[in-house]
Amino acid sequence: MSFYILKRLLVAIPVLLFLIVFTFVLMYAAPGSPFASERGIPPAVLANLQAQYGLDQPFHIQIWRYLVALVTEFDFGPSFIYRDQDVNSLIAQGFPVTLTYGFWSFVVAVLVGGALGILAAVRHNTWLDYLAVGVSIGAQVLPNFVLAPILVLTFTLWLGWLPGGGWQGGQWQFVVLPVIALSTSYMASIARIARASMLEVLTSNYIRTARAKGLPARRVILRHALKPALLPVISYLGPAFVGMITGSVVIDIYFSTGGIGQFFVASALNRDYGVMMGITILLGALTILFNLLVDVLYAWIDPKIRY
């Protein structure tokens, strides 16, 4: 097992390196200097500015410095727009927020979606099953950026129950709508996947055997059927995680939660290359790490995978 983890780690490192280099090259190739918008800068000042950020150096020195700073001290470099802030301080500001609602969304999606799917399969062709299928079909056409305005319209403007934006240090009222908006479509996908695989498992021979030898239904489902039925759900966790990270951009913009996505889009619109690069690399690294975790979890649960 530990050899398998090591092997996966050794694959993850070049991927991460590839992402960093790719992002850096993209930023390097970008037309115009980050200071181009400020017209009327005397050439001497511009040269000084570029020297201060190390932009006067040749490409290989720039990328080497960036990599070294990143690897040795987790330094994502400066922001080219906000002179008094660097990327690390922006991440420190936004990341706890993103993590809070991201964590809850993930929990809700996996637990509610998983439970709904399993229940629907166990109670196949009852109202519960139809409800689960209906919900998951409906949620398919409501991605977070469509659901968010509908939620605000309903719960803030019409019912007035919950605030339509803000964060306030993460009080629960401010977390509910972002979590619903972010988790719903993934919850639906997980429910669909869990239902389909549970249905398949429940018709398999060993489950029939377990029933035939008189095991109580609860034990058959929890002990024998659940584990293999959850395998497809686990392999979906990776894509779901990527989707939620991406969706956090919408949540931050729509609900003004002040998470990391807000800085990303602001930096994209301002052409603040330092921040864009930093956030892309951070989220890329997180995704790669998470996929690694999912792979390990999968290998641990599925006896068919040899490592």
């Binding site: 790719f22 991406t246 995704t287």
Partner: peptide
């Protein structure tokens, strides 16, 4: 696998901006 494990939406936004 490598391409799939990259949060492509951010890369796409990067491409659009650059």
């Amino acid at each position: 696998d490598v391409l799939m494990s990259i949060p492509y939406m951010f890369v796409l936004i990067l491409l659009l901006v650059v």
